[in-house]
């Protein structure tokens, strides 16, 4: 668990960070909280010559909550997301999910940007951001662009971000008042990746489901935004048949792999149970 040697950079602004990336190409990686990258370096599975630490970049910090959109700097920690009252009031799903990430020590250091940008299918925030329909702001040498969370993930550790880009901010539409929400997760222990997790948003209009969004975590090599599962709820009264149809549709699109948490049939079953609980909780909160 001893990493190989590397050069350490600590730029103070995004432009400097990008120029370091540009100079060193795939020899360089940015590090935010480091919970994924540092262990990989210690295991010598990530071999890089230049480590670009983003913690001094002020423009990547802070939480702004507007009427329609909340903007999270990529360096916002999970702890900051949990303790920000304005964010919790606007998008309570974020707090509910962040509280299920590891333990307080990890959450003091782990960042939302690192969590979504790394492309690790075990991370909770990517699915959450897909559920919320967030937009990721990517800064490169030629300026910024945004990519929808739902379009960002290509395969495990492969994303729409170019090597010389940095994910700087996350723009999240604020759900309408009365939106029901739930983040449900099964894990073996604190600090473990999910055996299965799911994020659900539901809005009701009278007795009818007006809209829904469902995302599943660690059940494929990317997060899964289960469009058909959500569609199975919309226009219904969220009756038993609709909820069962949503679960069936979600199980249809996930593709879990066997690991120490269990084999595929177990994971699919648990995913269905977890999603059903998330739908039930979100429905109970929707008004």
């Amino acid at each position: 668990m001893i990493p190989a040697g590397f050069e350490y950079h600590r730029p103070a602004d995004v432009a400097s960070a990008i120029s370091i990336l540009k100079q060193h190409g795939d020899e360089a990686r940015v590090v935010a909280g480091g919970h994924s990258l540092i262990p990989m370096m210690k295991l010598r599975m990530a071999d890089l010559a230049h480590l670009v630490d983003l913690q001094d970049i002020g423009e990547m910090k802070g939480i702004q909550v507007g009427a329609d959109t909340a903007v999270l700097g990529a360096m916002v920690t999970q702890h900051e997301m949990i303790t920000h009252e304005g964010l919790a009031a606007a998008i309570p799903l974020i707090r509910e999910a962040a509280l299920q990430i590891a333990d307080p020590q990890v959450r003091y250091v782990g960042t939302v940007g690192g969590n979504v940008a790394n492309g690790d299918p075990g991370n909770d925030m990517p699915g959450l951001m897909q559920c919320l329909d967030a937009q990721f702001e990517l800064a490169g040498a030629d300026g910024s662009r945004t990519v929808a969370a739902r379009d960002f993930y290509e395969a495990a550790y492969f994303t729409a971000r170019d090597d010389e880009e940095i994910l700087t901010r996350i723009h999240i539409p604020v759900p309408s008042a009365g939106t029901g929400y739930a983040y449900e997760k099964q894990k073996r222990k604190i600090g473990d990746y999910a055996t299965a997790a799911s994020a659900v948003l539901i809005t009701m209009d009278g007795g009818t489901c007006a809209s829904a969004s469902i995302a599943m975590t660690n059940l494929a090599d990317t997060p899964i935004w289960a469009e058909a599962a959500a569609a199975a709820l919309v226009g219904t009264s969220l009756d038993e048949a609709a909820r069962a149809a949503a679960v069936a549709a979600a199980i249809d699109v996930i593709d879990p792999v066997s690991d120490n948490r269990g084999p595929v049939d177990f994971k699919k079953h648990v995913a269905g149970v977890i999603l059903r609980r998330a739908i039930d909780r979100a429905a109970s909160r929707a008004s």
Binding site: D103, R188, K189, I190, G191, Y193, N260
Partner: peptide, 28 residues
């Protein structure tokens, strides 16, 4: 409830880190 040193059929240790080797925290 979870702690084991497991091997695959090739003799690879499947539980060689604390991610997979169960160490209860205060939470569990």
């Amino acid at each position: 409830m979870g702690q084991e040193i497991a091997y695959d059929e090739m003799g690879n240790v499947k539980t060689g880190t604390l991610m997979d080797f169960f160490w209860p925290t205060a939470w569990e």
